[in-house]
């Protein structure tokens, strides 16, 4: 779910752009450093952005029967790392605005913050935590992917509530309204995306366990050769 073009007041649009800039800049810096060590990875970001864009265009069978699209933030954060997801996510959101009129240019900063910063960082942190708590690989992936989705939607609701507080109930009432109305589509989507990401990683684990182990996503004992 992206905030549409022109929906946020001008000071919020600018504010979120300024808030997102350091994360995107750090992401580019981190990626440049990685490319210096592994020059063969220099095409990776562009290809990963295209992959995320195409993935977000897939139709996901939703629990409630309606069709929705995965965000790919959880999957991307686990595969490419949360820092790299900030520039990748920003380009994907820009392309969605320019090629699909989904989201917008003035709301790019706010959408980047919720979808390319909060979601991926939450996913990476939760995945790391779940692995440290010795939860199984599938459960860790499910928690990371579905919570990345949920937190993205909670952040968007908070952004909208901050911009448009309820005249009587203030921020809290407004947040409850936005979160409540979007929950109808977003909670089933989070569950479906969590399941889908587990299926993706199961397929990767079955056929490409070595690659996952190289990325430090799987432990040695989990790889069956």
């Amino acid at each position: 779910m992206h905030i549409m073009e022109g929906f946020l007041p001008v000071e919020h649009a600018f504010g979120w752009t300024i808030a997102s800039t350091p994360f995107v800049a750090y992401g580019i810096y981190a990626v440049k450093k990685r490319i210096r060590d592994n020059p063969e990875q220099r095409m990776l970001l562009g290809v990963a952005a295209a992959f995320t864009f195409v993935l977000s265009a897939l139709k996901l069978p939703s629990v409630t029967g309606s069709c929705s699209h995965p965000t790919g933030t959880g999957l991307g954060a686990i595969l490419f790392g949360p820092a790299a997801m900030a520039p990748i996510g920003m380009v994907v959101l820009l392309f969605q605005a320019l090629l699909l009129a989904h989201g917008g240019l003035t709301t790019l900063g706010a959408n980047t913050f919720s979808m390319a910063i909060v979601g991926p960082f939450a996913a990476a942190a939760l995945f790391g935590l779940a692995r440290r708590l010795k939860l199984s690989f599938a459960v860790s992936v499910f928690i990371a992917a579905s919570m990345a989705d949920l937190l993205t939607y909670v952040t968007t609701s908070a952004q909208l509530a901050w911009a448009f507080p309820d005249p009587e109930g203030g921020f809290v009432a407004s947040f409850a309204k936005f979160a409540g109305i979007f929950a109808i589509t977003q909670i089933p989507l989070a569950i479906s995306e969590g399941l889908l990401t587990v299926v993706i990683f199961n397929a990767l684990k079955r056929f490409n366990a070595r690659e996952l182990q190289d990325m430090n996503l799987l432990s040695r004992t989990e790889v069956r050769v």
Partner: peptide, 30 residues
């Protein structure tokens, strides 16, 4: 819908692998 989820998962997993393969091929070409 169960089959659909499985098929989509296989599709995305296959696409995920192509990310590295295609990035590597592009690098070699460049």
């Amino acid at each position: 819908s169960r089959l659909a989820l499985r098929s989509l998962g296989d599709l995305a997993a296959n696409l995920t692998l192509q990310v590295w393969q295609r990035a590597h091929a592009l690098h070699v070409a460049a």
